[in-house]
């Protein structure tokens, strides 16, 4: 609608340019998967072939899954992301509801704190949180991976915006129906704010599945490592020599988010694109 219809030449040029740039974007993915299918001999032979002459996928992927605790890394990733997201929603939604719909002393102050929290990047907090975790004896535990993210100022902010757009009358009606304030949050506000909940969940899961910085500081033992840290450990152990299994490992780490993204593209774009706004 907004832009006029392209002529045939221009339309063709559009496809040509976008296919080319799209191909460039995909090269690292393609190369990664391609190497994960090849035997060492083929990897170290010069040549462009995308597909292997001798399929070596089974060997590479089974090595990736057995030679390193990759399944454990993935499980850790799922546990940590799940725990963080549950805590964030459980803690942020009631606070957001209080900020959006209730009047109480200190509301302005709390909201200011949320805005300040929004401003502070997590890397800044790493040093004091590391010291705190050390003092509490929490270093190298799941708690160390999860606790720093238990509250998300962004989550509070996002939910508050959404809750504010829900009419007050719905809250009043729920109260007349005998719901407690907490029940209003769970039974009324959150279900009505589903789009915000989904967008925030994607934002949270993607950020923490991909996070390398904090796990690097917080844990040392292999059985606690989330995937990005695990793949770094795997790479250092193998000393870069065994490319096939390493690429298989990388592929497996990237795969869950990529598959989820392709299945629910619109939600991802909204969750991550709107995420920073």
């Amino acid at each position: 609608m907004s832009l006029r219809r392209l002529g045939p030449v221009a339309a063709l040029a559009r496809h040509a340019v976008l296919l080319a740039s799209g191909a460039l974007m995909l090269i690292p993915f393609v190369w990664m998967v391609s190497l994960s299918l090849k035997p060492p001999g083929e990897i170290f032979r010069a040549g462009f072939s995308l597909l292997p002459e001798q399929w070596y996928a089974v060997e590479n992927y089974s090595r990736a899954l057995t030679a390193s605790p990759l399944p454990r890394y993935m499980l850790n990733g799922v546990l940590v992301c799940g725990a963080i997201l549950s805590l964030q929603i459980a803690i942020c939604a009631p606070a957001a509801y209080a900020l959006a719909k209730l009047r109480f002393f200190g509301r302005e102050g709390l909201f200011t704190l949320v805005l300040i929290g929004l401003l502070i990047p997590h890397e800044v907090l790493a040093l004091p949180l590391f010291i705190l975790a050390y003092k509490l004896g929490l270093l190298d535990t799941y708690a160390a991976l999860i606790m720093p993210f238990a509250v998300s100022p962004f989550g509070i902010f996002l939910f508050r915006q959404f809750f504010k757009s829900i009419p007050d009358d719905i809250v009043h009606a729920a109260r007349l129906d005998g719901l407690s304030e907490l029940a209003i949050v769970w039974r009324v506000m959150l279900p009505m704010a589903m789009p915000a909940v989904i967008a925030f969940s994607i934002f949270s899961i993607v950020s923490h599945w991909n996070d390398l910085f904090w796990p690097l500081i917080a844990v040392r033992s292999e059985q606690l490592m989330p995937p990005p840290l695990g793949i770094m450990a795997f790479k250092n152990e193998e000393a870069g020599s065994d490319y096939g299994p390493l690429m298989a490992c990388a592929t497996l780490v990237v795969a869950p988010l990529v598959v989820a993204f392709l299945a629910a593209q619109r939600w991802f774009v909204e969750g991550l694109g709107g995420g920073v706004k």
Partner: peptide, 27 residues
């Protein structure tokens, strides 16, 4: 849109490993 957006959400630590292979001096 999907193709161009893919790198943004892919795990950078894993993709860095792929980039290293891509930039390997010989292979």
């Amino acid at each position: 849109r999907a193709v161009h957006f893919l790198p943004f959400m892919a795990t950078l630590a894993a993709m860095a490993v792929a980039w290293e292979a891509l930039l390997h001096p010989t292979i």
